[in-house]
Amino acid sequence: MYDYIDSHVRYFDKMYAKRLRTYRKTGFSIWTQELQPKQIINAIFDSVNYTEKFEQDIVESEKMVVISTPDIRQDKIDRFLLLIKKRQEVGVKVTVITTDPEDITYGKSDVCYELIRIMQLVGINVITRTEVEECFAVIDDEIVWHGGMNLLGKADVWDNLMRIRNPQVATELLEIALEYSEARRKSE
C-alpha cells in the first residue's frame, strides 16, 4: 500500500495522523524502498512504546535536534534537558518550535513562559508561534519522527508516530518549519 502525505496542508496532515493509527492497529510497518530489519529503522510507534527509541535517538545525536511540539509540559522538558545536556556539550544544536504561551489553549501561560526561559538558559533555540500544529522531530538531518504526538507535551493514548530515516523528508520538514520562522522574523 502506498500512502502519500501532503504536510503543506493542515487538513491533509491531520488525516494522515488518523491513518497512522489505523495502520498501526492493522499491523502495518513503514517501508521507504530500503530493505531494513523489521522495526529497526522505519516503524510506527504509539504513546506506550516510542519513548525508549526516541530517547536513544536524542542521546545518539551528533549534529542537531529540531522538535516541533504544540504543547510543552514540565516533566517532558525536564527529561529532555537531562538527555540533551551531554549532546549540547559536544556541539549538538537544539531547536524547539512550540506555541506562544499567550496563545495556548490548555495550561497556564506563565508555566510555559518559564519552561521556555529554562530551555533558552541552557542554549536551546526556542521558536514560538501563534499556532503550531506539526508534531515532529528531526535528528541529524536524517531521522524523522512524525505524527500526532506532542513529543515534549501531553501524549494522548491514541497518538502515533512514524520513525523513518530519510534525509529528503527531514529536509522538507525543516524547510517548512524553519522557513516559516525566518519569514516571520523578517516581517517583525
Rank of each mutant, 00 (worst) to 15 (best):
I84S: 00
I116L: 06
E55Y: 04
K76P: 01
A177L: 04
V90E: 10
A177G: 06
R79M: 07
V48T: 15
S7H: 14
T22M: 12
Y11A: 15
G148S: 09
E172G: 06
A43W: 09
E175P: 01
Y11C: 12
E134W: 07
D78Y: 10
Q88P: 05
D13K: 09
S47R: 06
T99E: 01
V96N: 00
L161E: 02
N49F: 05
A177K: 00
K38P: 06
F136R: 00
M119C: 10
Y113E: 09
D75S: 12
V132C: 00
I67G: 00
W158N: 15
L20N: 05
N42D: 13
K25E: 12
L81C: 13
S29V: 14
A137L: 01
T99H: 02
T51P: 05
D57W: 03
Y4M: 12
T32Q: 11
T128Y: 04
L83C: 05
Y2W: 12
A183F: 09
I164S: 00
E134F: 09
E102A: 15
A170L: 05
L35T: 10
V65W: 00
T51R: 12
R184V: 09
Y180G: 10
K154W: 08
L178A: 06
K154T: 14
R87L: 07
I127N: 00
E55N: 08
T51C: 07
C135L: 05
E62C: 08
M1E: 08
